[in-house]
Amino acid sequence: MELDGRTALVTGASSGIGAATAAVLAAAGCRLVVTGRDEHRLTEVAERTGARSVVADLTDPAQLRLVAEAAREADLLVHSAGVGWAGDLAAMPPDSVAGLVALNLTAPVLLTQAALPGMSRRRRGHVVFVSSIAVVGVRDEEVYAATKGGLRAFAASIRFQAAARGVGVTTVFPGAVRTPFFGNRGRPYTRGFPRMVAPAAVAEAVLDGVRRERGEVFVPRWLSAAARLHGAFPGAFHRAARRAG
């Protein structure tokens, strides 16, 4: 997909992967619309990238509808908004469960529903879902992993109709990324392996996925081997994961 002059909407753009993605898309010549909940940080991103900013909480139906209006005009839609929660499932507040599902899964589904008709009519467009390697299952992050697995299944399903209408679909699966995510989920990242990657690495993977119309992209690339092992030998994968702690 040629990006120069195309309109791109990036969610979760006030920090982390979303902010880095906005930067690389601006450099590629996109006309940007960025959305996020942190008005101050979002304004800074918009000023750096020449974007139009839409401050919105995507878990709020009224604010989600506002962003959906922008999605209808987008040639490229990047779903990078997301939140995590780590801990014993029994201790997870019901509001946190609902919030994770609303932001990580429901919002991308509804925004994609809004964007696809226009992309199909124009016979061009691309939708990017920032999922996670957590789709293989992560201890103490059951709800988060479920939402990211749901994104993968949704993307794989809409790829059928999208391809017939000239629209590409890419799912990106990052490992641990150096963003505020881990602090916000309630538990810092303490593992020495796999090592954390910079948000810019994920942003470049998004750009490459769109330009090359890749279906699935892993960051770093070797994580695809872990996903294949999980798919082919789930029992062996989970035994290895338990030993790794």
Rank of each mutant, 00 (worst) to 15 (best):
G5D: 05
G5A: 02
R6K: 13
L9N: 07
T11P: 00
A19Y: 10
A20H: 09
A28V: 08
G29P: 02
R37Q: 07
R37K: 05
D38F: 02
E39T: 11
H40Q: 13
H40G: 11
V45H: 02
V45N: 03
V45L: 06
S53K: 10
L58W: 01
P61W: 01
A62V: 12
Q63D: 01
Q63C: 01
R65L: 05
R65T: 07
A71K: 09
D75V: 08
L77T: 05
L77E: 05
S80G: 12
G82M: 13
G84Y: 08
G87K: 07
L89W: 14
P94T: 14
V97E: 15
G99R: 15
L103I: 10
N104V: 12
T106N: 12
Q113F: 07
A114Q: 14
A115M: 09
P117R: 15
G118D: 10
G118S: 11
S120P: 07
R124E: 11
V127P: 00
V128S: 00
V130C: 06
V135L: 04
V135Y: 04
Y144D: 01
G150A: 13
L151E: 10
F154V: 07
F154L: 07
I158G: 10
F160Y: 15
A164I: 00
G166Y: 04
V169I: 15
T170F: 07
F173H: 13
P174M: 02
V177M: 06
N184P: 03
R185K: 11
R187V: 08
P188A: 01
Y189F: 03
T190N: 00
P194C: 06
V197D: 04
V197L: 03
A200C: 03
A201P: 00
D208E: 15
V210W: 06
R214G: 00
G215L: 13
L223R: 10
A225E: 11
A227G: 04
G231L: 13
A232R: 10
H238V: 05
